[in-house]
Design a protein around this nucleic acid. Sequence first.
RNA 1: AGUCCCGUAGCUCAGCUGGUUAGAGCGCUACACUGAUAAUGUAGAGGUCCCCAGUUCAAAUCUGGGCGGGACUACCA
Length: 1150
Amino acid sequence: MSDKFREYKQLDLSQINKDVLKSWEEEDTFHKSISTREGNPTFVFYEGPPSANGMPGIHHVMARAIKDTFCRYKTMKGFRVHRKAGWDTHGLPVELSVEKSLGITKEDIGSKITVEEYNAACRREVMKYTKEWEQLTRQMGYWVNMDNPYITYDNRYIESVWWLLKQLFDKGLLYKGYTIQPYSPAAGTGLSSHELNQPGCYRDVKDTTAVAQFSVIRDEKSEFLYDGVDSPLYFMAWTTTPWTLPSNTALCVGPKITYVKVKSFNPYTGEPMTVILARDLLYSHFDPKNTELDFEDYKAGDKKIPYEVLAEYTGEELTGVNYEQLIGWVKPDGDAFRVITGDFVTTEDGTGIVHIAPTFGADDDRVAKQSGIAPLLVIDKDGKNQPLVDKTGRFFQIEKMDDAFVASNVNTASYAEFSGRFVKNAYDEGLTDDDNTVDVDISVMLKKESKAFKVEKHVHSYPHCWRTDKPVLYYPLDSWFVRTTAVKDKLIALNNTINWKPQSTGVGRFGNWLENLVDWNLSRSRFWGTPLPIWRTEDGTQTKCFGSVEDLYGEIEKAVAAGFMTKNPYEGFVPGEFEDSNYDKIDLHRPYVDDIVLVADNGEKMFREPDLIDVWFDSGAMPYAQNHYPFENKAKYQPEKGRGVFPADFIAEGVDQTRGWFFTLHAIATMIDDSVAFRNIISNGLVLDKNGNKMSKRLGNAVDPFETIEKYGSDPLRWYMLTNSQPWDNLKFDEGGVDEVRRKFFGTLYNTYNFFALYANVDGFCYKEEEIPVEGRPEIDRWVISLLNSLIKEVGESLENYEPTRAGRAISEFVNENLSNWFVRLSRKRYWGGEYDADKISAYQTLYTCLVTVAKLSAPLAPFYSDLLFTDLNKLTGKETDQSVHLAEFPTADESLIDKDLEQKMDIAQRASSMILGLRRKEKLKVRQPLAKIMVPVLNGRFKEQFEAVEGIILSEVNVKEVEYLTDTAGIIKKKIKPNFKTLGPKYGKIMKQIAASVAQFSQADISTLEKSDSFKLTVNDQEVELTTADVEITTEDIPGWLVSSEGELTIALDINISEELKQEGIAREFINKIQNIRKDSNFEVTDRISLKIEKNDFYNQAVSNYKDYISSQTLSADLTLVDSMENGMGQLVEIDQNVEARVFVEKKG
RNA sequence: AGUCCCGUAGCUCAGCUGGUUAGAGCGCUACACUGAUAAUGUAGAGGUCCCCAGUUCAAAUCUGGGCGGGACUACCA
């Protein structure tokens, strides 16, 4: 082992990244960081599984830097941190890329390619970029346990998911229902939103639209509407799909929209009527010019129709009013024909009242369910509910309906004409666009009944099926649901216990989402995913859900015995054995599970429900499935307090996961365990390019994380990302910012270390001396130690509160401003030359302590350099027993070392120094030229005491000999007074302005009266005002006749007269500086001794001889001689003053 | 369309519960320092605190309404 601190020529963070990684691997540091915490309380982190079928991007570094920071922090706080890596492996993107790379479609599975091959291809595809992900994880220093990651396609993972589904099933939270989805009657298939968004699917078509009149039922709920009404009263609603009107069961209004009641005549029949519609849309339906027409003059058939607005109502008021069914073909079962509210209603077109047909619109279905409105359904011969339009796109035929239902609910006389008709002509091969559509016929029917206000053709954009080019219908399709609405209150209550960062995402985005919760649609008609473990008989009366392979296995055996299957496809599997070898024998994916036909308790065949489940369920199940719970690791879920793996203490992902992973985790944990899944959460914002645009490969503005890490190392990248903006704000990623962090923070820290190492090596300091008690150290040491402890407190609190930005910024501020720019700069002289005495040792100990503490504080954020710094320091001193900073304990602040008074004093010193340097600059006085004195006005004793304490620091920093304190009595200080708004404002309120004006008028005498008696009375607006010194701020701003600088309460004057003696000292310092430069240029060692010759010159002869000893000691010269003339070419010319050059010869001695 | 975030110097961001000269870093310009030196310091210029209205003695800060950028969700009679 070397006996010196390592010194560096330059800071290469990229190389350090590699070196430190290597040592982590050699020392197995990551595993040690867990094993050394064995038996301690756990800190549980859940890794949101990424999908490895895409390359990792720079935004992944962001999220993972956050995750890693807190896991490292908690490790240093002594917790045993659980963080298991995982992979999200299911879903449509995988299927699509497999099909693309193999050049096949789903139909080819089983023919062109075997199921086994397809399955294998999916497994390969989904792990395509595993290597890159692992590499990024490693290089960026993200410590997550990759030894045994959870993989969502793994049979054991699926088994846990099945177990969860079974729990939901048993609790009655899993049911089969329907949602409104795009459906192509021509192709006979449902369409995904993905398919609908393909180019060309949305097309402008011309359809018959109708504004229909819904007749209000007069009762106690609607009575208020009848004031002044003498004709039938209607709600007006517009539709572009009149064929949905027979399925209407509600009308929807916007709660905050204003509606008007208008008296007029029906344009088609001329019958008097009163209608209700949105005020904003009045003139779209009634010509403003007609408002002056006389009702008496109107005859049926007139083009110009008079109208009159009778009253206004808000949507809220209209809610609950009942109306008559518009088209009485089929009676719905349940509550219907009522006005409800919906937040999606606008007054952009139509009437501001939306016709609701729950079976044919997603919004319709949603608001109807929320308001308890029944959909309009018919019952078929099998006793199943069906919408009024069947899957081929025609009105449900009467003969296919249940007879009893027809008798009780169907008006066959009026419906017969429409029964079996296609709702779009495109579906009927015998029809063309020229034939009358159902829409037209329904509109004509309404016209005749005075129920149509306006029927017209209208061009609008409508989705079409990409396979058949025919229009799509929104249609209720079977789906399996999780009844999340049943636990809505619990979800909300538990959410309120979660610490969200930022809070707004939790109470706002997530909270609102929970408030408007609908049941979770689990079904996906896909191939590569977790199959629903549900088998049903064909008539749907018998259902079985399986929560383990063992249960399914047993049922298969029964089915084989019953002769439904020839053999058990999972033959050889041993229930209860959890090794890879056993689970490799089976595959729970499609289509293997589809081939399983089971036997129901009544002996009928049971077939699997063909759907897969939402991949979000997979990832939301990870708290359980990652450990194959409850089949294995059960004990970890019922632990003594603080020792388990559930729930998570912390998770972090992008804010885009709010309704994805965050929700599914929360929902599943709530339903299964009545518990939160996570206690603390950071949802981070996006990483944009430096112009604020979204990064995309297409635009070429995506930043490659590997290149960035290679170039700068991970630390500057992580630090930049964590400190540039709060994690939850979007980050405008600018490479220049990473470089700035490298220079400003890491560069300065490195410089500070190198400075330390340089002199510590010269003096042989290796912290073997007794620790000098802090109270025995000089002011500046105590000051920096005080700040250091304040910093420890702040960083600790910030990380405790999941605020990495505050932590990083505080560390950076400390290193740059306080440690480097003040402590080291002021203490430099203490390190070089001189005795190895207590002061010097104190200087080393203090700086060492600061450096090693900064290493520990920054370790969670910048794991690489901090570890190098820590080990470089510790290798020699052996002060710490831990091999790595990541195994060390996080520092705790020693409150007794925090000295706010001292911090204030040093603040004065810093400000005073900078002011004096400013004055010197103004007068073009070099700092090397000593000056005689500064003068400081003293307003109170405390200030004088503080200034005196740092007097020496200021004087040496600005090269001035003494301080003169000016007290009031001298009468040369001019004072300035300013009211203290914070104390006066609440007391005097309205007359504040006048008080401020009066105070501004105070004379010097007034001010001194106030100071002496601590009271001053004035009258403002006939009100007596008494001021005390606490109500004002008194400062000095001028010392007449002197060069003065003033900042806040601090005022300093500088004496710029230079005596002969000062002049000579200045010359001496000038020589020292020049000689030092020569030493350095000649590459002398810091410790080399020299001999010195200076050619005589009357300008400086006296100065050199007077300050001979001073010059010699500073430059380590053994002899200094003034010579008459230098031999030719010897020595070099240096400038001592303007136009004065000296020839100096420097020679290394011995 | 709804929900949420953001809008402060040319750029990236601070600015806590309202209190009177609105800050920092980068960049630019000038100067200084010099045994930390491919470093460092100091200063200058640079602001409609997105706009409008309100509350208040007092608003960058609180309230309401816009505008602009972004995300998510839903897609519309």
